[in-house]
């Protein structure tokens, strides 16, 4: 390879916009199908535990807090979550959703936890769950 071969490439890069962005001030758009972190919409959850059963990382915990009033508690351990969005696919009522945040780091893994206390919703599951 002769050195002259590089010259057009060099000149091209001299007059090009930088390939990077000034990250903390400017942010790139994430793609529409980006898998961020899962969150729950408690008004839709029928506590069928499909997400808990299918989660490959065992990051979702659903416990019954009050049997009589049909109260449930869901805890998502984001430190274990592998962001695969299987819970969204498994959910029959669209109660599990994905956000598109990517700056989710923390100093302590015990802070990476979110909890919802809710009463079981009465929503009819869709005939054919989304796969």
């Amino acid at each position: 390879m002769k050195l002259g071969v590089f010259i057009p490439e060099l000149l091209h890069h001299l007059f090009k916009k930088p390939a990077t962005v000034d990250y903390p001030f400017k942010k790139l758009e994430v793609p529409p199908d980006f898998r961020g972190s899962p969150y729950l919409r408690p008004e839709l959850c029928i506590a069928c535990r499909a997400c808990e059963r299918d989660c490959p990382a065992e990051a979702i915990e659903i416990t019954s807090t009050n049997e009589a009033e049909k109260k449930f508690r869901m805890v998502i351990h984001y430190d274990r979550c592998i962001h695969c969005a299987q819970c969204v696919d498994s959910c029959p009522t669209d109660a599990m959703q994905m956000d598109n945040l990517f700056e989710i780091s923390d100093y302590d893994r015990h802070h990476l936890k979110k909890q919802w206390d809710y009463a079981r919703a009465i929503v009819k599951p869709k005939a054919e769950p989304k796969t």
Binding site: D54, P56, I82, Q86
Partner: peptide, 13 residues
């Protein structure tokens, strides 16, 4: 120890 669905993500990794 994992179900068929859970194993997809394990195999991917």
């Amino acid at each position: 120890q994992k179900t068929w669905i859970q194993n997809i993500y394990l195999m991917e990794r």
